[in-house]
């Protein structure tokens, strides 16, 4: 069975999918359309549910074949900026069940007509054509957590433009990978560590990056501030050796 899930930005798609995965014993697959370069939701889901099979663009045939197997559910997450009519042929190929996650006070949207089932979601800003997306890939960069916390507070309180949604995965000095999440009016932890191994050998060779949705975003200032949060090359090895010692991991010895 294939279930396509759509919502406005910050509506709660990934949250709803995670809830379904937690409640099932079936094998589960996940495909997020047009997010291969910034696979934040896929990484978060796989960190929480390592058994989930992640599909990327180009693996649609494999996804279809997997869905034919019994006792298997595959979720296709459709980002808010995707034109629903544009992906209709793909969804028809998959013969999807369609779920829309929509705030309770929203009526007469394209999503309501599109969906087979409607789930009440987060109270979020109405879809607006003036919304911009700013994405940044930080793979290999290590951030100072205190700096990141300052940046995140400024970002979400409007210092770099009006933000309606922000999420990101960041590699930190202690080797952990952290997930940051912001939806206005939704009180919850801003950062949580992902269930991934600590990276303490040089620059992390795994995805890190962010996606910000909003209006009048000052992209260059955002980029500069994130850059200012990064640990300089010269300090990375020092911090990692210190951490290895404090964690009881044998520090690397250079043989001369």
């Amino acid at each position: 069975m294939i279930i396509a899930v759509a919502s406005p930005t910050g509506g709660g798609k990934t949250y709803w999918i995670a809830k379904q995965i937690a409640e099932t014993n079936k094998s589960v697959g996940y495909f997020s359309i047009q997010t291969d370069s910034v696979p934040i939701d896929a990484i978060c889901l796989q960190s929480e549910f390592p058994q989930v099979q992640i599909y990327k663009t180009g693996e649609e045939a494999k996804l279809l074949a997997a869905s034919d197997r019994q006792e298997s559910t595959i979720y296709i997450e459709i980002p808010w900026y995707i034109d629903l009519s544009g992906i209709e042929p793909l969804l028809q190929t998959f013969n999807c069940h369609r779920v829309a996650i929509i705030p309770t006070d929203v009526n007469n949207t394209e999503l309501q007509t599109w969906a087979d089932k409607i789930i009440p979601g987060n109270q979020v800003q109405q879809q607006d054509i003036s919304l911009q997306i700013h994405r940044g890939v930080l793979t290999g960069e290590i951030l100072d957590f205190d700096s990141l916390a300052v940046f995140w507070l400024e970002l979400t309180q409007g210092a770099y433009g009006e933000v309606v949604r922000a999420k990101g995965i960041f590699d930190l000095v202690d080797g952990q990978s952290f997930y940051g999440d912001f939806i206005p009016n939704k009180p919850e932890l801003e950062f949580k560590p992902l269930n991934l191994p600590r990276w303490l050998n040089g620059r992390p060779q795994r995805f890190s990056g962010f996606e910000i949705v909003g209006k009048n975003l000052d992209k260059s200032e955002i980029a500069q501030t994130v850059k200012d949060c990064c640990i300089p090359e010269s300090a990375i090895d020092y911090y990692q050796q210190q951490l290895k010692e404090s964690l009881g991991i044998q520090p690397e010895v250079e043989v001369v």
Binding site: D146, S147, D228, C229, C230
Partner: peptide
């Protein structure tokens, strides 16, 4: 300075 960002600023 409590952070790298604060130090740079």
């Amino acid at each position: 300075y409590p952070s790298l960002l604060a130090e740079k600023r």
